[in-house]
């Protein structure tokens, strides 16, 4: 829209750089009004479809869950007559947090995050650094190979690892057994690690990809300069590479935190193989059960909201922690 006046005498070349379609514009009558209206219309056409879909399939469910979590459905009187919906404020939250098994599942989820997040970040970072160290023989080949499991759905990954976790079908457990090591990944002590391994297998290559891209973005003059100064490979890694890919490490960490909160599929698939996984092993499983097996969607909504809150506290807590000193990453 802000273009008409630029057409005159001075022409395009000397036109001031414009910050954007609706940036500051020279006064011009008539045509300008028309283009402005066209521009506004275009803006709406570009923005509305996504925004409407986002409102319907992201915002509305969250609002609905919030509202739903404040109500309960009671059978009226002696249990005859239609059930009625009653506003109970935070009662569902009190019920959820008063339930020992739900609190235990939250604790389990936190423990799982403590195992999974460092494991994921360190592994993907190590793979990225090794592949980009200049010492790898076939970096492209290895990169594609590590990335491949990302294409395997979590359900299928859990099914596959499930077979590798039971002695009858697992060549690994059979091999370890032959040398006198007997592992039982699906025991109550090992099952969180068994699940963490499935998630690591699926996503380490993807996170490695993000970190490699960040490493590649570092100007190579920095390395040259450091080497002329006699810096060792370790020192280059610590003092140049890690600080410069910090924003990407933070991104990977936040995505992994959010990923761990979704824990649902793996325990669901592994459950028939072990007694160590209960029907409310994770908060998401508990909410799913409340919703569809126990028929209490209101309590399920409260549980889902609690998980989302834990997620926000974790993500923002982590971002605050890393942004407190030094440069902001986000």
């Amino acid at each position: 829209m802000s273009t008409t006046s630029d057409r005159t005498a001075a022409g395009r070349a000397s036109a001031p750089p414009l910050p954007g379609p609706s940036g500051p514009s020279a006064p011009a009558a008539g045509r300008r009004g028309r283009t402005r209206r066209q521009s506004r219309a275009a803006l709406w056409i570009l923005i509305l479809p996504f925004t409407v879909m986002f409102a319907a399939f992201f915002v509305a469910p969250i609002v609905f869950a919030l509202v739903q979590s404040l109500f309960t459905v009671r059978s009226s009187g002696l249990g005859f007559g239609p059930p009625e919906t009653a506003f109970v404020f935070l009662e569902n939250y009190a019920t959820a947090l008063g339930s020992a098994s739900f609190v235990a599942s939250l604790g389990r989820l936190l423990l799982f995050s403590l195992i999974e997040v460092p494991l994921m970040v360190v592994t993907s970072l190590a793979l990225a650094l090794l592949l980009e160290s200049g010492r790898a023989r076939f970096p492209r080949f290895f990169r594609v190979l590590y990335f491949a499991p990302y294409g395997v759905p979590g359900v299928i990954a859990a099914l596959l690892w499930g077979f590798l976790y039971i002695p009858a079908t697992s060549p690994v457990l059979q091999g370890l057994d032959a040398i006198g090591l007997s592992l039982s990944p699906l025991s109550s002590g090992g099952v969180l690690f068994a699940i963490a391994n499935i998630a690591l297998w699926g996503f380490a290559g993807y996170n490695m990809f993000i970190l490699i891209a960040a490493l590649n973005a570092i100007p190579s003059e920095l390395y040259e300069a450091a080497r002329i100064d006699g810096a060792s490979e370790w020192s280059v890694t610590w003092n140049i590479k890690l600080p410069l890919v910090r924003p990407s490490i933070i991104l990977v960490t936040v995505f992994t935190i959010i990923g761990t909160l979704q824990l649902f599929v793996e325990p669901l698939v592994l459950r028939p193989l072990t007694t160590a996984i209960s029907s409310d092993f994770t908060p998401n499983l508990a909410a799913y059960n409340q919703s569809f097996a126990q028929g209490n969607p209101n309590l399920a909504a409260a549980m889902a909201v609690i998980v989302a809150l834990v997620g926000f506290v974790f993500s923002f807590g982590f971002l605050r922690l890393v942004n407190r000193k030094g440069n902001r990453a986000w």
């Binding site: 969250i62 979704q262 998401n284 919703s291 969607p297 889902a304 998980v307 989302a308 997620g311």
Partner: peptide
Amino acid sequence: LVPATVIALPLYFL
């Protein structure tokens, strides 16, 4: 940042 699991259940009812 919202876990997909948090959206799926209420979305079912909607």
